[in-house]
Write a protein that binds this DNA or RNA. Structure first.
Lengths: 343, 343
DNA sequence: TTCGTAATTGGAACCGGTTCCAATTGTGCA
DNA sequence: TGCACAATTGGAACCGGTTCCAATTACGAA
């Protein structure tokens, strides 16, 4: 006894297959009497339409893909959660493509963007290169970028410039004057424009306060706690070490905290540290940070994509999400001696 | 210019559609000359077979579903990572179904296990109830459970009994005699058998050391840091409070640590804490814990499922993964006074 | 009662693959 | 050279839906 088909239902109900299809799709052109006959046949056979046959016939995949470096960054998982939340309630299936290596990245960017495979694509924290962009446009694939920006596509971006500014202003207000910046650079094909925007806002705020920005206070490396630890060690060994460090993600901030503690310095009395993202453990560890709405970015991205699948926009849309300073216990005014030196 | 079909390729190559299909599927019954003609036509048209048509024709979905409470537990994300790693390299697509509420859980368990939807199912940390089990069996759905166990299905389980024993033996060896256990119970439809197994191994070890287990040392609540914090507070206010606490997950352990610190006690000198899972931050926070191979459990589960889709086994298979004690800085011998009291 | 129009209905054709069977071509051997 | 059999090949039928058009039925007006 294999599963019933629409023809079985039609036979049992004593109607044509077209009529069954109409009932399934809530067409108004069915008399109430026939509708009931069909519904009871459906019930009797425990019939469900085969989604694959439906997709082939409709010429749609009813599937959305998400390409992202999910598991290298806790923040991405939280965005994915937002996306799943929207798509799980829709008729679209969600296929995940996790990128951990450049090879996987290229393979996915090459193979996934086919109309026969997905109806739309969400790309998180990965910047498509020009070739990818061309391919996506040629396929007329609806695409929404999250946490990344490219003029060719709709996007949910985070106001990272403002975020960088918030971080700087908080530290400046506390009295810090020498501030380090720790970020990740990774492979150039991975996201780093978010970091650049954070740095930009950060520098703008410093310069507005009359403080020149020195590149020696900027360290960039891999996106890992260990890498951030090393970078922080380097920064703290400068002739005039920073009294505060701004890390481009909470994960990096934890590496910085570790380094500072290893050097026998206390946080926040001797060194202040501020992160970015406000991932879950940040609260537990009482890290001062810049919060961005991770979950919400996923929700907005998912909704935007669904909308654009139904109605392709003539011009890409941009949604900008705000950032917010969350003051906890890793930032404080600089040590007394520092303050005297600076005057 | 819509995408090319197999008939276009056949026309260009001057062969029949059957032949094109044979070339696509590496059938040996094609002469080399024809194969080349077909391949160059495919090249010329930039043709890719439509996976949906293929699925309909094959009667397979080439899709695997994963149902799990991904985002409420960091450990699940790591398992998912292992699964994606295996499936991303296969011809199967991976659809995620995230369960955060009982409603979603029920909806997914009802709708997903249809052969027309997925060819196989991975279920992580969620125990199907009897009705679900019946439905899955009726649909003859290949199912692999990860981090959970039910005799009806193949599974990758973790030797949690041994894990619980390891935790107890470590604390016993350090000299602890009054040990608390903090676990989560959640909704009964969610996983808690893993916790029970951990508790079982734990108790066995205690009893083998001649220590009777008192239920008042067992606290169970929601799976969150905050909940663990409260539970730890309760345990520590007992007349003879535990000198060590075993938490059934690292997340819970962090809640315990927080509570202990709030009470002005130091870890590990006054209270020892041991977790379970060894999630990423555990190392950063120097938590002593029981490590289980999260990533590997996903890899093994993915492989097992693919195998069972190809060749349904007559009887469910069980893969048991080991656990390992990782000693860091949250466990130590009990305080001096305690030791004197006990002798 | 008859006719015209609107409301329903049936089912062929189609979506783009795979598979199987019959037909055609090729090969080895007497 | 002729024949038996193996190797290739073509394409109808099928997978299970949707859609569109022609046919049938229902209904109100004359």
């Amino acid at each position: 006894m294999s599963t019933a088909t629409i023809r079985d239902v039609a036979k049992i109900a004593g109607v044509g297959i077209g009529t069954v299809s109409r009932v399934l799709n809530d067409s108004p052109d069915v008399s109430e009497r026939t509708r009931l006959k069909v519904l009871s046949a459906i019930e009797a056979l425990d019939y469900t339409p085969n989604p694959i046959a439906r997709r082939l016939s409709l010429g749609k995949t009813l599937t959305v893909g998400v390409i992202a470096p999910f598991f290298t960054r806790p923040s991405v998982v939280e965005r994915l959660r937002g996306i799943e939340n929207v798509l799980g309630a829709s008729e679209y299936d969600l296929i995940v493509f996790n990128v951990e290596t450049v090879a996987r990245r290229d393979a996915y960017f090459r193979d996934v963007p086919r109309r026969e495979r997905v109806d739309g694509l969400l790309i998180i924290s990965l910047l498509p290169d020009e070739e990818d962009v061309q391919r996506l446009r040629r396929a007329q694939m609806p695409v929404v970028l999250v946490d990344i920006s490219h003029p060719a596509f709709s996007r949910v971006s985070i106001d990272d410039v403002a975020g960088g500014r918030l971080a700087a202003e908080h530290l400046l207000a506390l009295g810090h004057r020498r501030i380090g910046f720790v970020s990740d650079y990774e492979d150039p094909s991975f996201d780093f424009t978010a970091n650049n925007r954070r740095l930009q806002g950060f520098r703008t705020a410093l310069e507005a306060a009359g403080i020149a920005w020195h590149y020696r206070y900027h360290a960039a490396g891999r996106h890992s706690l260990a890498s951030a630890r090393e970078m922080a060690h380097r920064l703290m060994q400068l002739p005039a070490p920073p009294t505060a460090i701004f890390a481009a993600s909470d994960t990096l901030a934890f590496g910085v905290l570790e380094a500072v503690q290893e050097m026998g310095l206390t946080v926040p009395d001797e060194v202040s540290v501020i992160g970015y993202d406000d991932i879950e453990v940040a609260e537990y560890l009482q890290l001062t940070t810049i919060r961005q709405s991770l979950f919400e970015s996923g929700v907005k991205g998912g909704r935007l994509l669904l909308r654009e699948i139904r109605l392709p926009p003539s011009t890409p849309e941009e949604i900008l999400l705000p950032t917010e300073l969350v003051v906890r216990e890793t930032t404080a005014p600089p040590a007394r001696s520092e303050r005297t030196i600076r005057r």
